[in-house]
Amino acid sequence: MTTLPFMPVQQRAASDSGHRFDANRHWAASLTLGFGAYSDGDRSITRMNKSHHYGPLRVQRPFYPEGRDGCCHVYLLHPPGGLVSGDALNIDVTVASGAHALLTTPAANKLYRADSNGVAWTQTTHLKVASQAILEWLPQETLAFDGSRGEQTFLIELEDNAKCLGWEILGLGRPASDLPFATGHLEQRFHVSQGGRPLWIERQSLDPSHRRFAGKWGQGGATVHATFWAIGLADPAEAVSALREYLPANERWAVTFRRGVLLLRYLGMDRNEAWDLFLQARAVLRPRLTGHEATIPRIWLT
């Protein structure tokens, strides 16, 4: 009988599964989507013409709640429901000229506490929109648990005359359970360009141990950070005025327009308030950007 060499339980588990469970753990998943515009008589139909995945990232079939010649709605699925140490998610979306796609998620994305080795997770989203194409990036909120460590990166590449509307809502901790985001470190990065020209480059570091986290000159202890963007508006000044007139007036949000990008920011304590604010902002901006009313994805109503 052959005697097998002794292997610690963790090492055997890593060997059997193909994954590591030590400080070098790395669990990758990726999703690549493509959308094109196709002629059907006198109509132009957006179809998902590419869907490649690796690991636990999927999409449901496309939906057309706005009609077959309307926007193509797609739901991104991540069955684990959140990110843990070592996860590396990569989402790559390309929208060809003449196409109009809307991407959202069925539930909130959760960022779980880091493991005993403090290994971080990463999530990279790369959106490419061709001239005369429209992309709406509308995920449900992201919830960061105490002790989470990771980095979110958004890369948005637009050709001239491309249009993009999107948001990112981040809730820190679980206030309802009296579990604040007291430890950990998150970093968000945004890089938006059009025609190869940088429009918006930003890096935000969220570290509870830094004075900026609680200081009134910084975050002021806010537990919800949210950013809404719109690019390609025909009359940005009128759109900004419409938002300021239509949205409920308070000190928790502000809107600006610079270098071709309209940015609506929320900094407060209530992710439901941020969500409602962004829904109202989309109702104002979507008709101005796309010429269509702000249809609600069905998955938000379930």
Rank of each mutant, 00 (worst) to 15 (best):
N24G: 08
R25H: 11
R25A: 14
H26M: 04
H26A: 02
H26P: 02
A28H: 08
A29W: 02
L31Q: 02
L31S: 01
L31E: 00
T32R: 12
L33H: 01
L33G: 00
G34H: 08
G34L: 08
G34C: 10
G34S: 13
G34A: 11
F35V: 10
G36V: 07
S39W: 00
S39Y: 01
D40G: 03
G41K: 04
D42N: 11
D42Y: 01
I45E: 04
I45P: 02
I45G: 03
M48W: 02
M48S: 04
N49Y: 09
N49Q: 14
K50E: 06
S51Q: 11
H52S: 10
H53K: 10
Y54S: 13
Y54A: 14
G55E: 03
L57S: 00
L57I: 04
R58E: 03
R58F: 03
R58P: 00
V59T: 15
V59L: 10
V59Y: 06
V59A: 02
Q60T: 12
R61N: 07
R61G: 03
P62G: 10
Y64R: 06
Y64I: 04
Y64W: 10
P65I: 03
P65Y: 05
E66I: 06
E66H: 07
G67Q: 12
R68G: 13
R68N: 11
R68A: 09
R68W: 08
D69F: 00
D69C: 04
G70L: 08
C71M: 13
C72Y: 03
H73V: 04
H73L: 10
H73W: 06
V74H: 00
V74Y: 01
V74C: 00
V74F: 00
Y75A: 09
Y75Q: 10
L76I: 14
L76N: 04
L76R: 05
H78I: 00
P79K: 07
P79A: 08
P80Y: 08
P80D: 08
P80N: 12
G81N: 05
G81S: 05
G82K: 02
L83K: 12
L83D: 10
L83N: 11
L83T: 11
S85H: 14
D87N: 13
A88Q: 15
L89A: 14
N90E: 12
I91L: 15
I91R: 05
I91M: 13
D92Q: 15
D92N: 15
V93A: 05
V93I: 15
V93W: 05
V93E: 02
T94N: 13
T94P: 04
T94K: 12
A96I: 06
S97L: 07
S97V: 03
S97C: 11
G98N: 10
G98F: 09
H100W: 14
H100Y: 13
H100S: 15
H100V: 09
H100G: 08
A101Y: 00
A101K: 06
